[in-house]
Design a protein around this nucleic acid. Sequence first.
DNA 1: TGATGAACATACTACCCGGTATGTTGTCAA
DNA 2: TTGACAACATACCGGGTAGTATGTTCATCA
Lengths: 217, 217
Amino acid sequence: MVLVELGTGEPVTERARIEILDAAAACFMERGYAATSIDDVARRLRATKGRIYHHFSSKADLFAQIFRTGMDMNFAAIEPFRSLDEPAVDVWTKMARTHVRQMIVTRAYQRVVWEGVEMHLRGATTPEQRSQFNELVEYRTQYSNVFRAQMARARDEGDMHFADLSIANQMMFMALNSPIFWYKPRPGENMQDIDNIVDQIVAFARGGLGGKDKEES
Amino acid sequence: MVLVELGTGEPVTERARIEILDAAAACFMERGYAATSIDDVARRLRATKGRIYHHFSSKADLFAQIFRTGMDMNFAAIEPFRSLDEPAVDVWTKMARTHVRQMIVTRAYQRVVWEGVEMHLRGATTPEQRSQFNELVEYRTQYSNVFRAQMARARDEGDMHFADLSIANQMMFMALNSPIFWYKPRPGENMQDIDNIVDQIVAFARGGLGGKDKEES
DNA sequence: TGATGAACATACTACCCGGTATGTTGTCAA
DNA sequence: TTGACAACATACCGGGTAGTATGTTCATCA
């Protein structure tokens, strides 16, 4: 699923790392961080703790690396649209669609991102892990700001209408992120079905931001 | 905060129950269900486990009663609007505003409701607790259906435009519930400030549902 | 072929947490 | 006055969990 070859490195070791990340992300998605034990993750891998602690220093470290991987994927996905020379509302729409698809396709990782932000807001974790969490949340804030900038531009260009930018940004991400909570893959579902869902979500968010419909003359 | 006098009962006992519910709701909001220990709740009350287990049979029972209380408050809040003889979009708007205010004012309880639904979707809890959870989630679904019905009517009346009713309902609640995640009371904040936030949230949701602005002729 | 180390599995420990069993104290009715 | 009970506090137990220490296996390389 996640394919990141680093350097001239060890594809075997990297493969093992990713398998663990995927399994852990799935567990965290199903039960949440606190309710997931390392043994749960190991069981899903048909392995034992030893395998996990050989690659990750702690449960929090495992969680943090899933967080980072999820955000890496998000940044990579919207990268092609970040500096398009088009009306901001169009750039925003393309990024939003891509973002929603990411939420659906990489649900498990995105749930971890969500829970990570929540944990940070609540002030969990130990002081030492705190700095790493701060960095990750900052990373996510940068991502958020990419959308925020397009929204501000779109408002200036008269294509969006909302009062407070921060609140609008919050609402937008709540809408775009929502499928990580309620989307369940249906058997026999194809790309059109998913695109249909994506369209409705983006349409909702654009409408919420006072964006005009493309169809109006 | 929660004032429910039952029968000709014991106001003292009821008061003690509510204090525990408030403290537990605050803990669950801050750390989540799994990460909150009964001792955490007791500590917040400057008491010990004994007090809690004297009034509640288990951690899950405590959680469930917060869930129920939260939904009771929600139902009570929208009750005056449920059968108004007005355009559906207006009824919806009044209910939505009331709902969002509830989310802000009773944040802690509403976070428990949220987490309870999540836990149910993920299939946590033991089989016995399962039936009680099913009932609570059903209770919440009934609440959701009150809004759903108005949305369907508003679409029929030409005042809202969306494709799939279920998805629209999901998106709407994501938007209206969103302050339970990001709202933090500001020192010196008054009712106008809150109403301003409520307005923006409801405006976002109405826009998302393709609702027309009141101001347009 | 022998040594070395990566990639695990096994075994163990210290700790925390839900739940229970058992005090203790104050109140109130007879 | 006493006894009975509500409303807690205290003490304790068993199970689970993060993390560690210690095997074990197998490939690679000198």
